[in-house]
Design a protein around this nucleic acid. Structure first.
Length: 627
RNA sequence: UGGGGUGUCGCCAAGCUGGUAAGGCAAUGGACUCUGACUCCAUCAUCCGAGGGUUCGAAUCCUUCCGCCCCAGCCA
């Protein structure tokens, strides 16, 4: 039995061309004329077992759907049945371009774009850019990129609230004409002091009863830049005694001489959210304006303004935002993590941002699946478990990831009865047949060659001198299989002066070549391994949660104290030669270890891997119980 | 304290026109296994925040109470 193949026949991993795997790194998904959804998209080809496959089929005679509709879809059904909006569904995703999108936004994206898809409607992407001091073009581009990565495309060009500044201004004058808005000269402090408390009504501003003419004149002069910043505001004239604070004459416009990322210096007055949002929805002909629960109190002014102005009125509906254990989703805290250097940036693989999750290796399909499985409700403050995200990731990755071998924590194995200097090259499948073989999206090679020799590395965890009965791995006198190679039996160990194991001595059974014994004997354990001489050392980044299950309340600002110091662990893994050619974005399963994706820090021939998720580890549980 | 919401298995979540508690995750037991992975099978709320009431019958109706979330930015 001599060397079967030469080293140069080892297949490089350059065949990793699954478009889904590369999506994050190629902006081509939406430029190939494939329409709004990337090829092999989850929404067209849901994963087997996906909850999305359980959505009601178009054929209504089928048995009832396994998954009941959430309250929003039930409402839309009702509206479609009654023709409330002429049978239209038109939603919008309205981020403020003041930061990066995170997994919480994904829920809203999936809801708004998903609804439009399901009902044959439309969904706009609109940037809510009414506060020039916080918004930047950089975020606009990042948000567009993230939405597309998630697998959605908006209808028409992206919109901006700032596109409507002119019309919004006209609406404001109209409101003044109707006697429903006035210019208030009070200071911000005075306005606050006069707003009242939970139990006391507010007090009317001394300027509340100005004439329409005076208000119009003042408002026009506000726009013309005659008054300093903060000196006056336009307020709706609603009800200073309303139990809902939002209705106590909310500010509609403020004077703010700031450079706007789009309108630049054309305006010195800017509309507030309550004024701009309802009217932007109205202008765009939105039917269902979906937002998170904290805007519940704002629905009253949303409706009030549109009614006063006689404008088309969408239906605002609120839903609970997404929370996940071990994750922090508040913008303030995320900024702090970046600013204080606890992470490498907004796209650090530990960040809950879409760019971070993407870089970590979570497929967009997994994020969508998570949102679908979490569902919609109005129960605030509920927190989904991280394990569900991991489950969704494994579900998607299991289907698409080629299997390879890598050792994260190596210990040397010497096979005493194996000839020195000999190297065998075993051909191994990237997608074992038992697992269903390669997915259709896979266009790379089906196999690669892996070298085997006298000196190997196995995982340190896979060896025990004193092994409990349930330990199915290598220990003195016990036989195990080296995956696709040979059975070996441990004959001894070599220790250093400190008592650490430096070498495991073994004997192999040549009859078991390929991994099966002709005499039919079985082994309980199969180990992954790598040939010591040919293995390639590569930087591998192992991630753990940054926070305890529920991130401590951080209003004191010291939440950084609770950070897991081991959230990033960098190790030098020994990987099979074929993996040396991995390029950024290539996603694989290291057998028995987990799913990994080559990071964008990878260089030719020098990949860097991020661990996306571990495999489930039943042994770890067994072991814990035995302790 | 005023108003608006909300409370169903460890987690998410159906149920909401009263008829005797879906599903998923997690967990547990087992089968299978050249990944202790995947897959498969089984188990997992006599009870729906609590107390009253209506009813032959209530998680679903009425009532009282309790918990939690949001609102007093010229943020969104």
């Amino acid at each position: 039995m001599e060397t079967l193949h030469t080293g140069d026949s080892a297949s490089p991993v350059s065949g990793f061309v699954d478009p889904a795997l590369h999506l994050p790194y190629r902006d081509s998904a939406n430029e190939e004329g494939v329409g709004p959804f990337p090829p092999n998209d989850f929404w067209r080809n849901p994963l087997p077992g996906s909850v999305m496959t359980q959505q009601p089929a178009s054929a209504p005679e089928a048995s009832p759907p396994a998954i009941s509709k959430d309250f929003i879809r039930a409402m839309v059904d009702e509206d479609m049945a009654t023709g409330k909006y002429g049978g239209r569904v038109h939603t919008r995703f309205p981020p403020e371009p003041n930061g990066y999108l995170h997994i919480g936004h994904a829920k809203s994206i999936c809801l708004n774009f998903g609804l439009a898809r399901e009902y044959g409607g439309k969904c706009n992407l609109r940037f809510d850019d009414t506060n020039p001091t916080k918004e930047e073009t950089e975020y606009v581009e990042a948000i567009k990129n993230d939405v597309r990565w998630l697998g959605f495309e908006w209808d028409g060009p992206e919109r901006y609230a700032s596109d409507y500044f002119g019309r919004l201004y006209d609406y404001a004058e109209a409101l003044i004409q109707k006697g429903k808005a006035y210019v208030d000269d009070q200071t911000a402090d005075e306005i606050r002091d006069n707003r009242g408390t939970l139990t006391e009504p507010g007090r009317a501003s001394p300027y509340r009863d100005r004439s329409v003419e005076e208000n119009l004149d003042l408002f026009r002069r506000m726009r013309a830049g005659e008054f300093p910043d903060g000196s006056r505001v336009l307020r709706a004239k609603v009800d200073m005694a309303s139990p809902n604070f939002v209705m106590r004459d909310p500010v509609l416009y403020r004077i703010r001489r700031a450079h706007h990322h789009r309108t630049e210096d054309a305006w010195c007055i800017y509309p507030m959210y309550d004024f701009a949002h309802c009217l932007s929805d109205s202008i765009e002909g939105i039917t269902h304006s979906l937002c998170t629960l904290e805007f519940e109190n704002n629905r009253e002014i949303y409706d009030w303004l549109l009614i006063q102005l006689g404008a088309y009125r969408p239906q605002q509906t609120e839903f609970a935002r997404l929370n996940i254990t071990h994750m922090v989703l508040s913008k303030r805290k995320l900024i702090q993590l970046v600013r204080d250097g606890h992470v490498r940036g907004w796209d650090d693989p530990r960040m809950p941002t879409l760019s971070g999750l993407r870089r970590r290796g979570y497929p967009a399909a997994a994020i969508r699946e998570l949102c679908a499985r979490v569902g919609m409700s109005r129960a605030a403050g509920t927190v989904a478990e991280y394990s569900l995200l991991d489950f969704c990731a494994r579900e998607a990755l299991n289907y698409t990831s080629p299997r390879v071998m890598a050792v994260l924590d190596p210990v040397k194995v010497v096979i005493e009865n194996y000839p020195e200097g000999r190297t065998e090259w075993f051909e191994m499948p990237y997608f074992p047949e038992e697992g269903g073989g390669a997915p259709e999206s896979w266009s790379g090679p089906k196999t690669r060659k892996v070298p085997f020799s006298r000196e190997l590395y196995i995982e340190r965890d896979d060896f025990r001198i004193d092994a409990p009965k349930k330990f199915f791995r290598l220990s003195p006198g016990r036989e195990v299989r080296l995956r696709y190679a040979y059975f070996i039996i441990c004959t001894g160990v070599v220790k250093n002066d400190a008592g650490e194991i430096t070498e495991i001595r073994c004997a192999y059974d040549p009859e078991t070549r390929g991994g099966d014994a002709p005499d039919g004997r079985k082994v309980k354990g199969t180990l992954h391994w790598v040939s010591a001489a040919e293995a390639v050392p590569v930087e591998t980044r192992l991630y753990e949660h940054m926070f305890a299950a529920v991130a401590a309340d951080t209003e004191g600002g010291d939440f950084a104290a609770g950070l897991n110091p081991d959230s990033l662990r960098i190790v030098t893994a020994r990987v099979e030669p074929a993996l040396a050619g991995a390029k950024a974005g290539d996603a694989v399963q290291f057998e028995r270890l987990g799913y990994f994706m080559a990071d964008e820090d990878s260089k030719p021939g020098e990949p860097v891997f991020n661990r996306t998720a571990t495999l489930k580890d039943t042994w770890a549980k067994v072991e814990r119980k035995e302790d």
